[in-house]
Each structure stands twice: as C-alpha cells, then as structure tokens.
Design a protein around this nucleic acid. Structure first.
Length: 431
RNA sequence: GGAGAGGUGGCUGAGUGGCUUAAAGCGGCGGAUUGCUAAUCCGUUGUACGGGGUCAACCCGUACCGGGGGUUCGAAUCCCCCCUUCUCCGCCA
C-alpha cells in the first residue's frame, strides 16, 4: 500500500510512476475521498472534545451534589450526532482503504521503463549451454524412460497440473530441497522456517495477494482460508502488526509446497513440469532497514544464483521493466534456466524488493537508531522453485542412453548416487 | 467438540464507572558521579490519525487496555458476540 500522504503531496510523481506500469489508477477519486475523510474527522473530533469536557463538568457537579440533568440531556443529543458522524467516517475510511489496496507499488527509479515482457533487460548470464552431440529431448520424454512422473494417474485423483513424482524423481526432489536449505542456512545466514501452508485473509492482504489475485488462489471456504501460493505469505506475515524488537536485517528461508490456480493460463507451456498447480519451492524472505534494501536485493539475487552455480546450471538474469513488474514489487529480477530439451529459458526465481509496500499493508515496523518507529522494507526471492529446477537438471544432464547425470554437489544428498538410470522393471518392458 | 481460567504499553504487573493524562518495576534513551569490564543517583519514555506551526527536535485535539457491538453524561472497568492462549475431558495421525 502506498502512503496517502505521499499521494497527496507528490501527486504528479505518483501519477507518472503508475502510468509507467500501464495501469490506469483513479488518483482523483482517492484524493477526494481523503479530503472528505479529513473534513469529517475534524468535525467529529470537535464534538468529541466538547463531549469530553462536558462529561467532566457533569462529574464534578454530581460529586458536589448539584443537579446536572439539563447538561446530561444536551450531551446525550450530542452523542447521537457523534454516532452518526462516526458512521460516516467509517464508511469513507473503509472505501478509501479498499481503493488504496488496489493501487500497485511505485517502481524504483532504476527499473527500466517498458510496456511488457518484451522490454525486459538481460544484464548478464552465467555458464555456457552444454554442446550436445545428440539431439536433447524434453524432460517428459526422459521422465517416461526413467519412470519419474505419473501425470495420468495424478489427473485421475486430482486433476491436470498436479504432478506425481515417483522413485528417483521423488528422491531427487527431496535431495534438492535439503541441499538448498543447507546452503541458505549454513552459508548464506538464513534461519530456517517451516510455516503453515494455509493462511487467512489478513495475511494474504498483507503481502498483496488479496484483493487482486483472489481467483489465482485455492480457497477453503468452510474455514475461510487460502492455500499459500508461495511461502512469502506465511513467512512475511510472521511479523504482521508488530514492531520488530530484534536487530535487522532478518533473513528467513522456508521450504513449502505452493498452490496456484493459474487462472487463464490453461494450455500455455503446460506440458510436463513447466507450469503446474502445485509445486515445491524454497523461498528466502528478508526484513531490512530502508537504507539497505537495494543492497540486500543484490545479495538475495546472489544467494539464489549461488544455488544454480553449485548445480552447474547455465542461467541468465532478467531485469523486469515497469510494465512487467508484479503488483507489489518496486523492483524485480528473474532468474531463467536454460532447458536444452525444449530450447527455452524457464523462470526459476523471482527476487523482489517491495520497499515498505507490504510492511505498510501488514503493519511491520521497527525502531530506528533514534527510537522512531518506521516501516521495514521487505524482500523475497525463490531460492529456488523445484519443478523447473528439476526440468533443467534432467534436460541438461541427459545422456544419449536416456539416463541423467546429476550435479556433483548432490551426491551426498543422493547416498552417493550420481545419475538417474532406467529402473529394471521399465528396462524389462522395453526389451 | 465440552468445561474452566486468562488476554493491559518493548517486557513483568496493578487497576470493579469520573484526579488513570494507565500505578510501580524492568528495559531503552539522556545526564551526573566514580580509577576499573560495573554500580549509584537524577531526568525522560507508546502508536495511529486530524489540525496548527519558523514544516523540525514543537503545540493542540481524537482514538487505542485481544477484536467487534451495547449500556452510560462518561467505560481498561458493566453487558453481549467473536478470536486467541493455558489446563482438564473427548476425538484423532
């Protein structure tokens, strides 16, 4: 959420910044509501001041035994007016609040201006795509050979887009989670969190999923809870409505499943594990003082990159332009892995700085050196998402015989196993 | 799911209708003093919103004692509903 005072005082700047996002925002309406709210507040507070004074007088009079029934009558009538005005204030306030929740964050000055993804920048990349002396195949072909996935049966029990991993794939996924958490906790200084996988409406509003993304989430109506689309939600909301007492920055990492309805995405790049409704992810979340947030964003990005470098997977960094930036972000880098079997780049991480946008919604504050209460800056990034990481490992590590050579660094996590091979049961079927 | 007991500031903890502007202590911040890794003494101490202002380190007002309603001239205090924590019982991986 933006600060209404900032909108009031720097209307033109805000207007320009939001236009760069390609979103029409009704600032006039917001400012009119704000004016109305302030007028009403002035009025009702004047009455309340008067009532407080009169009540004190009545108390004095009664104590000294005098009659105060005339005054009581007057104050009672004033009370009716106050009640009516309070009601109006509440209405205007909640309407303003609803509207404010719909306004996206202002992009940071360093964000390239552009209309859509075609104007994103690619400042750098890491690693050389492997040169194949045979034709690399997509991961779903490898999956068939190695018995990794069972999409058909998963569809029967749940529906399309809910992957079922078997045998070596399930174990590899578990190994990857363990590996990433170990690197983040032991070497990057994050505290490991295992949060709830369902959150309430307040938490979802705090990080910005609600109200705009409601139809992208799974909702459990009976209990009024949402399945988390990312660990960002429960982990960022750890400090909701708090003044954080411990020193900043705070760096947290969490493994969770993620649930996304992906409304409107049906049929697009949905083959295999490319885009699914349920997936696992290791997430990083930071709470920092405002002065350091963009340095922290670079560090966060490097922490995610470090995972991919250790896994020896070539990637490129994408700097999102204003038109492609998500609702709550002020700046965002994506990391894209090369998938040689499909000849596409797949997004495995999104590292964002939200400045005080989420903190303001969620009421997350700290005390600065002078003891003043201020909003923290929040950041988060995937470190990283599992399905597409799995895709890249499979497609990059594939051998002519259909087996998959695993990154060296995973060996301790795979009981020394260094490749995925055709299981005996499947091999027999082929012969 | 049932019964009982709780929820007060950064923390501990008083407070059963108006001198509560939330006591006291701890912690924090500022100062004084002291030859020793500290003690002692003094002062200070919340948040949000609105208004004013030499637009700041200030002043005025309003609200805030888990959340929401109600009673009252006046509510931390009385009443109702909800949330939540703890204990016991039931159910259960």
């Amino acid at each position: 959420m933006l600060d209404i005072k900032v909108i009031r005082e720097r209307e033109q700047d805000v207007r320009r910044a939001l236009e760069q996002r390609g979103m029409g925002v009704q600032l006039d309406e917001l400012l009119a509501l704000d004016q109305r709210r302030r007028d009403l507040l002035s009025e009702v507070e004047r009455f309340k001041c008067e009532r407080n004074a009169s009540s004190r007088e009545i108390g004095q009079k009664k104590k000294s035994g005098a009659d105060a029934s005339a005054e009581q009558q007057a104050v009672r009538e004033m009370g009716d007016r106050i009640k009516a005005l309070d009601e109006q204030v509440r209405e205007v306030q909640s309407e303003l609040h609803e509207k404010m929740l719909q306004v996206p964050n202002i992009p940071h000055v360093s964000v390239p201006v552009g209309e859509d993804a075609s104007e994103n920048r690619y400042p750098r990349s890491w690693g050389e795509p492997r040169a194949f002396d045979f034709e690399p195949v997509p991961h779903w072909v490898l999956g068939d050979k190695l018995g990794l996935f069972d999409f058909e049966r998963a569809t029967r029990m749940t529906g399309a887009g809910f992957p079922l991993l078997r045998g070596q794939a399930a174990r590899l996924q578990r190994a990857l989670i363990q590996f990433m958490l170990d690197v983040h906790t032991r070497e990057h200084g994050y505290e490991e969190i295992l949060p709830p996988f369902l959150c309430n409406q307040e938490a979802m509003t705090g990080t910005g999923q609600l109200p705009k993304m409601a139809e992208d989430m799974y909702y459990v109506g009976l209990d009024n809870l949402y399945l988390i689309p990312t660990a960002e939600v429960p982990v960022t909301n750890i400090y909701r409505e708090e003044i954080i007492q411990q020193p900043l920055p705070i760096a947290l990492t969490a493994y969770t499943p993620c649930f996304r309805r992906e409304a409107g995405a049906a049929g697009r790049e949905t083959r295999g594990l490319n885009r699914v409704h349920q997936f696992d992810k290791v997430e990083m979340v930071k709470f920092v003082v405002p002065e350091t947030s963009y340095d922290e964003l670079e560090k966060l990005l490097h922490d995610a990159e470090d995972i991919l470098q250790r896994l020896e997977l070539p990637y490129r960094i994408c700097e999102l332009c204003t038109g492609d930036l998500s609702f709550a972000a002020a700046k965002c880098y994506d990391i894209e892995l090369w998938a040689p079997g499909q000849r596409v780049w797949l997004e495995v991480s999104s590292c964002s700085c939200f400045e005080d946008f989420q903190a303001r919604r969620a009421g997350i504050r700290y005390r600065d050196a002078q003891g003043k209460v201020r909003y923290v800056h929040t950041l988060n990034g995937s470190g990283v998402a599992l399905p597409r990481l799995m895709v890249a490992i499979l497609e990059n590590g594939q051998q002519p015989d259909g087996s998959v050579k695993l990154p060296e660094v995973l060996r301790p996590y795979m009981q020394g196993c260094d490749r995925l091979t055709v299981p005996p049961t499947l091999a027999m079927k082929e012969n």
